[in-house]
Structures are given as C-alpha cells and as structure tokens.
Design a protein around this nucleic acid. Structure first.
Length: 209
DNA sequence: TGCCAGGCCCTCTTTAGGGCCTT
C-alpha cells in the first residue's frame, strides 16, 4: 500500500539521519545524534543537529565509526528532550532518509518513548537510487555522492553531514527525473511509488504523468 | 550455552537463500 503523502507543505520535506548505539532498537540500541535538513522550494531552508545522551555507554566501534565519544555525550541533553524538539521540527513535513527502514525504526522507537508521533509520509533515497541509478557501483550514500559528484565536506557518519548529502542526492534525483521525463515538479507520492516499483517498470511509471 | 537486526530485492524463487544497506 502506498503511504499517503502529507497534505500540508506539499513542496517541503525533511531529510533526516540518526547516529545510534547499534543497529536495532529492539535490541536496546538508542539514538545518540539526530541530523536533519528542511528542504523548501528545492533548496535547504533549515537545519537541525543535536547529540543526545542515551543513558548508556557507546561501544568503541561506534565511537570509531561515528567519531562520537562517551565524553561528547556526557553533557548532551537526554534523548527525551532532543526528540521532543525534533518532533516539533518534522511536524507537518514528509520525511526522507537513506535506507529509511533503519531510521524509521529509531524514529518510531524514540518518539514512542515520549508519546509523540508524526503524520508525514516516509520515503527512502536508497530504494529510489537503486531504481534510478542502476549503473552505480553500489548504493551506499558515500558511493552515490561520488557517483553523482554531489557536494560534500568530506565528513561521513555524522548525522547532519549525512542528512545534507542525502538531501543533495534527493534533489539530484528530482532534477534527473524532471529532465529525463519532463516533470516540472516531481510529487512526493511519485517518489514513494518509485521505491515500490520493479526496476524494469521504472521508465513506464515515470513516463505516465 | 549460544545467540544476537531487519526490510528490501534478486535469483539458481515463491514450501528459500543470500546480498545490500543502515549504526
């Protein structure tokens, strides 16, 4: 079933990225950083980035992977406070993330803890890129940034940096679809449909305006 | 004690298995 795109702020969306203590909130993992950018009118209009204290130590692997240390998290606000502010930030917007199933799990888990929710649709830049850029060497965020020569400051695995690169990737996909298939604006609902379309049927879907 | 994620997608498929991607 195709998710319903949010009716308000139809041309805006929030691209988000979590850094976490591990891979699964169902195994006790928590968020340690959230980064997000608000896209309005085809450009980045606002940013959100905060470390958050998960109430537990992060592993050496995570510290090496993200550069986020226990010392950095010691004085950070607890997840509950940060996520409450973030729930306000995403209110009324559709959402995008790279491998969205991962970020959605953590978003749902952290918001559930504070009794908050969100109403926008959720789309995945990785699934869209797999369909649009079938010749890419792979569909990791870093590889797609290099493949499409997207702006980057060279920082990877930090929430805001990854969210900004994902935003540039998303805007690039919208531009490529517009140029190839003649769209002036690509509806969010079409991007959601794209991520659920068989690779061989991509051209047919995008050609049916 | 031993194990330890999960959704998506492709194919040597659908009564399954394994790779990709996120931290």
């Amino acid at each position: 079933m195709i998710e319903k795109a949010h009716s308000r702020n139809a041309d805006s969306l929030v691209v988000l990225d979590f850094e976490t203590t591990g891979l699964s909130p169902n195994s006790g993992d928590r968020a340690i950083e959230i980064g997000a950018v608000l896209i309005e009118g085809g450009r980045i209009a606002d940013r959100f980035q905060q470390l958050m204290n998960p109430g537990r130590q992060v592993s050496q692997f995570i510290s090496q992977y993200t550069g986020i240390t226990n010392a950095m998290l010691r004085d950070a606000a607890p997840c509950e406070i940060v996520m409450n502010e973030f729930a306000d930030f995403i209110e009324g917007h559709n959402l995008v993330a790279h491998n969205a199933s991962f970020d959605r799990c953590f978003l749902d888990a952290e918001l559930l803890r504070i009794g908050r929710n969100y109403s926008g649709g959720f789309a995945c830049s990785m699934l869209a890129a797999r369909r649009l850029y079938q010749d890419a060497p792979n569909h990791r965020l870093s590889s797609l940034v290099a493949y499409k020569r997207l702006p980057t400051d060279g920082v990877f695995h930090r929430a805001l940096a990854d969210a900004e690169m994902t935003a540039h990737l998303w805007l690039q996909m919208l531009e490529d679809i517009g140029q190839i298939y003649g769209y002036q604006d690509v509806p969010f609902s079409l991007m959601q449909k794209l991520t659920r379309t068989n690779k061989k049927a991509v051209a047919k879907l995008l050609s049916c305006k």
